[in-house]
């Protein structure tokens, strides 16, 4: 058991790949945005890669271990200290009963993952322990960590001193610029040639008005094809309006002139077009980017996107681990 002393900024229990099978009822998958760092965190402490762990966002929590535990931190650097001693990222660490883990704002990246040997042991909801804050379900009481709350931990056999090989780490950029993969579609034919070129050749700023539901982007104007303008009235009046349809996770959803990347806690349907989709291989980048950082988009094929995801999956294995 672990006691919550400070919550951090919306720190939540997540598991991977999150909630499956309830999308059609309106439940998005939830789960960690940077699922690469998340899985590495679990592997370090001897868990299954998808076991439940904590996702800290921008500012980490302060926790008190009630019993000895093996834990690991991956992702963004939130300056974690265990009883005042700096804790290395990407490495499993032993904590004794009564020790305090204190974290601060992210120095690099945006999300830090805390795994515990044995995993976070909360009851699954619709087959997943992931927290869906908007729907008030999953995780601990359907909500982020609360001060004074307790995090139940299962029984695990982790050991300390395991670390991720340097060459297997997600390569965080240090200049605040990200090259994000996108695939064309489903509704790219609503955007004219000039608009498509502008999207792919412009720099886009990640708005501070972003969260796990969607990332809002700021950039140049969109222009449309005839299909978006000359259409049946039930589509709605704006060029970006269409008949209600389901939303893929990662879709770049265009409402008026504002593109929003739909993330893990997305609303599942609506009446706006999705000209492009960010494939799963780029989600770790979304998870680690900070407000006001810059995105540029790289158009790749579906096959290439699937190959890049397989390459990431391949590093989420015991082969990526060495003893410190």
């Amino acid at each position: 058991m672990i006691e919550v002393l400070k919550t951090g900024l919306e720190t939540c229990v997540q598991d991977f790949p999150g909630r499956k099978g309830a999308f059609g009822m309106g439940f998005p998958p939830s789960g960690p945005i940077d699922h690469w760092s998340f899985r590495l965190a679990n592997l370090l402490v001897g868990n299954e890669p998808g076991d439940a762990a904590l996702e800290c966002q921008f500012i980490g929590p302060a926790l008190k271990f009630k019993a000895p535990a093996i834990f690991a931190l991956t992702g963004g650097d939130m300056q974690a200290k265990l009883d005042g001693e700096y804790v290395p990222l990407w490495q499993s660490v032993a904590a004794g009963a009564g020790q305090k883990l204190e974290m601060g704002p992210a120095l690099t990246g945006a999300r830090c993952y805390i795994s515990f040997a044995g995993g976070v042991d909360v009851p699954p909801f619709l087959g997943s322990r992931s927290t869906f804050v908007l729907g008030k379900c999953g995780g601990i009481d359907g909500a982020p960590l609360a001060v004074g709350g307790e995090i139940p931990v299962g029984v695990g056999e982790g050991i300390s001193g395991r670390r991720i090989k340097r060459k297997c780490l997600p390569p965080l950029p240090n200049n605040g610029k990200w090259l994000i993969e996108v695939c064309a579609g489903p509704n790219d034919d609503w955007i004219d040639k000039a608009g498509q070129k502008r999207f792919l050749e412009s720099m886009w700023k990640l708005s501070p008005k972003s969260n796990r539901v969607g990332f809002r982007l700021e950039g140049p104007k969109w222009t449309f094809t005839r299909k978006a303008i000359d259409k049946a009235p039930e589509n709605g009046s704006d060029p970006s309006n269409t008949i209600d349809h389901g939303y893929p996770i990662g879709a770049i959803n265009l409402g008026g002139q504002t593109p929003i990347i739909l993330l893990n806690d997305t609303l599942t349907l609506g009446g706006f077009i999705n000209p492009y989709t960010v494939p799963s291989c780029a989600f770790w980048k979304l998870g680690q980017s900070r407000p006001n950082e810059i995105y540029e988009f790289e158009l790749i094929s579906i096959e290439e996107a699937q190959a890049r995801k397989r390459a990431i999956n391949a590093t989420c294995s015991e082969d990526s681990i060495e003893l410190a």
Binding site: A184, G185, P186, G246, I249, G250, N274, T277, P279, S280
Partner: peptide, 17 residues
Amino acid sequence: FLPGGDRFIEMELGDEL
């Protein structure tokens, strides 16, 4: 069939309500 990234497809059966 309209692809939506590496793991989604939007299948459109028509274009009206």
